[in-house]
């Protein structure tokens, strides 16, 4: 029986520059931040990031490791505009593929189902088709005279997601009200890595929540990282809410390069997730 437990550093050692990496969660909600910070400390570069974006995208823009971002939006929720992403777009330091939120779902679904595209209305008439000249439309092969956007499959080299619970075999459980698109990110990826608040015995899943909350089965995942507060400062309900004051500090770090350098030194460069938790007192008795 496979034991897929690994550290953030081991996950990142399996990633390569130039890869397309999908990141689960939504905005500033349940983002796999401990793995993201490990990427920030690495020499990975030229990454294509696919995300319902939040601080994951912002930070990878700030370090210059994101070459291209595929997104429907990038937001910190309680702070609507992601400041580092804004700076990267306004200075044109990243390549952007902007999509309707639903199109992003279909692109992941198409990759997961191994079809070239999925048809949708979304995009028709909007700037999305103008700013993404690679997007095509497709005429219905049936006698209804309709033409749809053919949303292409978004194939991922790797996906990283954060769940509430997982077992060592790579099943994962979501205890909040929305698991967002984490399962699709995993299915669209060659390899998927799930961090979680707590690794539990398989038999304990049903003590934690209903069977329907076990959204990832082990065929979908390649690695499991136990990372309590691994989504901090984004929320990971019901385990913890968003750390709003910390998020404001993060947002302020976009004001000057010096402010970002200071934030990076203080919270990213300090070391692994255990160091981060110790610095912030996250579930660590001092």
């Amino acid at each position: 029986m496979a034991d897929k437990r690994m550290t953030e550093a081991e996950v990142v050692s399996e990633l390569r520059s130039g890869m397309t990496i999908g990141i689960g969660g939504w905005g500033s909600r349940r983002k796999p931040m401990s793995i993201v910070r490990e990427i920030l400390r690495s020499d990975l570069r030229d990454l294509t990031i696919v995300s319902y974006g939040g601080p994951d995208v912002g930070m990878l823009c700030a370090t210059g490791q994101a070459k291209k971002v595929v997104y429907g939006f990038v937001s910190l929720d309680s702070i609507p505009l992601e400041p580092h992403f804004r700076a990267a777009r306004q200075n044109a330091t990243i390549e952007a593929m902007e999509l309707d939120e639903g199109m992003l779902q279909l692109g992941l679904q198409a990759a997961a189902w191994r079809v070239s595209f999925l048809p949708c209305r979304a995009g028709l008439g909007s700037a999305i088709l103008d700013v993404n000249p690679s997007l095509r439309t497709v005429a219905s092969p049936y006698d209804d005279g309709l033409d749809f956007v053919a949303m292409p499959a978004l194939h991922l080299d790797a996906a990283i997601v954060h769940a509430n619970r997982a077992d060592a075999r790579g099943n994962a459980q979501y205890l909040g009200t929305d698991w967002f698109f984490d399962d699709l990110f995993c299915r669209a990826a060659k390899k998927a890595y799930v961090s979680c608040e707590r690794v539990v015995a398989t038999a304990d899943f049903v003590k934690e929540g209903h069977e329907s909350s076990i959204k990832l089965n082990r065929s979908m995942t390649h690695g499991v990282v136990e990372a309590p507060f691994g989504a901090h400062f984004t929320h990971c309900l019901p385990d913890y809410a968003r750390a709003e004051a910390f998020q404001r500090e993060y947002a302020d770090s976009a004001k000057t390069p010096e402010a970002w350098a200071e934030f990076f030194e203080k919270y990213v460069a300090i070391g692994d997730h255990a160091e981060y938790r110790a610095r912030l007192g996250l579930g660590v008795s001092s």
Binding site: L81, Q90, L99, D100, R121, G123, S126
Partner: peptide, 18 residues
């Protein structure tokens, strides 16, 4: 291509409206 001010992104607006 190089916005003076980047806002949210199109979010769900393209799909909503059609």
């Amino acid at each position: 291509a190089k916005p003076k001010s980047q806002l949210l992104g199109v979010r769900g607006a393209p799909g909503n409206t059609v």
